[in-house]
């Protein structure tokens, strides 16, 4: 089990405390102290599971901005396109499906980048990430795809996650 590192505790604490402020939405001294105590306890217990790489990565404004750009501009567009496609299939009687599981290579190296990409893929209707493996230093995802139109490998990867991966590469190199 990895050891708890001090910077990881601080950044987990900041995240928990920000969430507490959002949920309570009150700035009375008592509430702040109680929130700080609870956040510190949670951070001490969970920091080592939560943060494996650089602790203050997201406090870098350039990274934060490209992250916001991804989650507010690139991802919603893909999400709406996939949703319209899926809704069309559903209202059309669910006959136009050709499901299959394809294996695609992933370029991202960072753990967080890979997790964010896998979650983005699962969140778009029509694709679900089912399993990840690593072969010779190259990560692969097994993705269940509702309408297989390209053979496994790079082609299917571009069709499923080309835009998403390009956006995420700017956040996590």
């Amino acid at each position: 089990m990895p050891k708890t590192k001090f910077p990881a505790v601080i950044s987990t604490f900041l995240l928990c405390f920000a969430f507490w402020l959002l949920l309570t939405w009150s700035f009375a001294l008592q509430e702040l102290i109680a929130g700080a105590a609870v956040s510190l306890a949670v951070a001490l217990f969970s920091a080592r599971f939560f943060i494996h790489e650089k602790a203050f990565w997201f406090f870098n404004p350039a990274k934060l901005f490209s992250g916001l750009f991804y989650w507010l501009c690139i991802f919603p567009v893909e999400l709406i396109k996939a949703n319209l496609d899926m809704a069309g299939r559903c209202f059309g009687g669910c006959k136009k499906v050709n499901p299959g599981i394809v294996k695609v290579p992933v370029e991202l190296k960072s753990e967080y980048g890979q997790a964010a990409l896998a979650n983005s893929i699962t969140l778009t209707p029509g694709t679900i990430t089912m399993e990840t493996t690593e072969e010779d230093g190259q990560t692969y995802y097994y993705i269940h795809w509702i309408d297989v139109t390209a053979p496994s490998g790079k082609e299917a990867g571009d069709a499923i996650k080309g835009t998403l991966e390009k956006g995420l590469r700017r956040v996590w190199q």
């Binding site: 999400l79 899926m86 559903c90 669910c94 778009t124 209707p125 694709t127």
Partner: peptide
């Protein structure tokens, strides 16, 4: 896959 439509 279809259930993802509801959740998003």
């Amino acid at each position: 896959q279809a259930s993802t439509c509801v959740a998003t």
